[in-house]
Every structure is written in C-alpha cells, then in structure tokens.
Design a protein around this nucleic acid. Structure first.
Lengths: 150, 150
DNA sequence: GTGCAGTATGCAATAAAATTGCATGGAGAT
DNA sequence: ATCTCCATGCAATTTTATTGCATACTGCAC
C-alpha cells in the first residue's frame, strides 16, 4: 500500500470507467504493472466492487427520508429480527443499529409518500417491536459521497 | 427505458467490472447494441458514474457515526454556510438538510475517536451556528446499498 | 558492504474486447 | 400501405487487456 496504490484508489473511487491504459499513464506506470496493482487491490478486498451509481431522481426515487426507530425490546434476537425485516425492503438503502436515544437508523429512497405510508405499515405498525419512530424528510442533499478518503 | 435497459442497470449496479461482451450475453443482445445502450444510459445521466467501492474497514475508517444537528439560526444563508462547512470535511460522507426536530443529518466515516473529537471541534463548537447535536455511533451495519431498485 | 529471496517493473507478443460503418428489420405515424 | 426513425446484428478495424519473461528493486541477514 504505497503512494501509487493510494493514487489508483482515489482515481477509481472517482471514476472507474476509464481504461487501464489511461490509469497507467495517470499514475506513471506501465499498463501491465498498473493492471497487476488494480487486480491485487481487488483480490485483497480493499476494492470491494465496481458499480454503476445511478442518479436517484432519474430512477423515479425522488424522495429521501431518514428514520430513527426505538424498539420496545432490545435483546439481540429482537434487534436482529427487526434488522432482517428492514433489510428486506428495497426502499431501505441503509440500515444501522446505533447507540444513543434510538436503536436503528434507516435511510430510505422512495418513489412517493404512498410508498412511505405502505412501508411504515409494514415496518412499524404490524406485529413488530417498534416503540416509536421519527421521520426526517430530506430537503437538500449537500453531500452524498461513495468515495472514502485515504 | 425498456426491460433490457432495466436489466442492464441492475447488472451494472451490482457489478460494472464485467466486459461489454458478458453483459451483452446476459441481456441477450449483440455486443454493439449493448454497448450503445450503456452509452446512452450514461449520456442521459441515468448512470451518474462508475466507481470503485472500497471496504471502509480496510481503509482504516473503522468507525461510523450518524449525527443530528440543530442550528441556532435557520435562515437560508445560515443553513448554506453550515452545509458548506460540513461538506468540506472528508470524514463527512453524507450531509442532509432535513425536516423534523433537527436541521441537518451527517454520516461520518472515522478513523478513531480522536478524529471525531477534532471534527466536533471544527463543526460544532467553533464560531458556528450549532445549538445542539446528537451523536449515534454505528454498532452494526445491517445494510449499506449503493444500488437503487428500478 | 555483499549476497539472497521475494517482489515489482517494463517490454513485447498475443488474446480479447471495444468501436465503427453499414445494411437490415421493426414500430409507429400518416 | 408507405414512410420515417431508431434499434439491431454483422463484420472489419482499432484499441485494450493479458501474459511470459528478463531485469531492476527492496528489505534483510550476514
């Protein structure tokens, strides 16, 4: 993990659509060396995957919401059951068990309020374990970064 | 935007490292047609970008935190100033202005608590506009998905 | 300093993939 | 039915990825 690896990772985190030739030139290596480094970074798991990031608004998911959830029962099995439940929902893009006043934080990508309503029914009102939940609708996304600084 | 485009987008959201030939076969098109579709999806902005997703733990950012922030002054210029401030911080991966009890929600990727401490100093205690903030440390990440369902 | 082992590098040949022009075929409009 | 527009597949061409191999480098023991 030297300077060149970091440079490669930074490039790939911003744009992984270029050719290996371009990248080799960008970091000052031959194409073969560059390729071998990238392969190593992938094999060792530092690079988890290479994916397309879609524009959420262009996919019809125009609403984002952040929801904090307080559970009634806090045992490990109850927590896991609830997390399994939310994880199965496609509108839930992130789900975290957290410290603090609440137990779980969700980030939702929604088509409309109707979808939110239906989701709340499934997650929070059914026979589940939810004491309270607070919804924060996202007004403005100031930053939404997939890259992790090195 | 037909069935094949959706199939392509789903594939690319999971793994954009394969060759165009593979994808063409996966969706049942010739390589040239497949390539033209993917280019169109990129050009029209449905595909925002193609990036490498790193394993956060492997990069040394082993802690995640979610922070809710209440501002003292809620005017547009104050909100914008605060959002500009947090956006400039590399540990802040997501920043949202939201409805509800709080004004801003941040998601942080941290190396250690020392970094968190320093960040709090810069964002919340300086001459800024913060009334209160609540920190939720992430205990477990149940879901962290870049793909948006179509 | 010297020698060694393990690793990274560049080069060049080869294999694979991307890209393009072009002719064909299909869907919808008139 | 005919026309237009756009997507498709094919095949030729260009570009890129991949591999073997010889060399250079790095860290380390002596």
């Amino acid at each position: 993990m030297d300077r060149i690896d970091r440079k490669l990772l930074n490039l790939l985190q911003r744009d992984a659509s270029g050719t290996n030739l371009d990248m080799a030139e960008a970091v000052g290596l031959s194409p073969s060396s560059c390729l071998r480094r990238v392969r190593r970074l992938r094999k060792t798991g530092i690079i988890d995957r290479i994916v397309a990031i879609l524009n959420p608004a262009r996919t019809g998911r125009v609403l984002k919401a952040i929801v904090t959830v307080e559970l009634k029962l806090h045992g490990e099995q109850h927590m896991r059951r609830f997390l399994d439940l939310v994880t199965g929902e496609e509108a839930v893009s992130q789900a975290y068990a957290v410290t603090g006043e609440t137990d779980v934080v969700l980030i939702l990508h929604l088509r409309d309020m109707e979808e939110f309503d239906a989701l709340c029914d499934r997650l929070f009102r059914d026979r589940t374990n939810v004491a309270r939940f607070f919804t924060m609708m996202v007004i403005r996304t100031a930053k939404d970064e997939t890259a992790i600084p090195l």
